[in-house]
Amino acid sequence: MSDFPLPAGFEELAGYRAWGLRTEQERSDRRQASTVADIEEFYRVMTARIEEIFAHLNALPLAGLAPADENLLLLTLSLQEISTVVENYRTVAVPDGWDVRDIEMNVVGGTY
């Protein structure tokens, strides 16, 4: 059993387990510590399968996800985290944006 289980058919994404992060703070930190090449590769791989991923996750209730399904969700949340900068800027941070490394992010309600 992998320490980063994924639903059947999505096992190839295990190579990106480093993006399986539980909090917005961790995802933001990782984005800004990455290289453009890294986030573009992750973006390409994830967007190529995004319709299948949505189809899989949308069929499941958010509460009580199995570990494999939750891991897939976490990767998808990381895709969301990086997609704006990949699509608009080709940088790891928003030009002239806030330096969010100094912002403490607190989850209010919800899980992720």
Binding site: E87, N88, Y89, V94, P95, D96
Partner: peptide, 8 residues
């Protein structure tokens, strides 16, 4: 840069 960032 702020209003139409998708155009950059």
């Amino acid at each position: 840069v702020a209003t139409h960032p998708e155009a950059l």
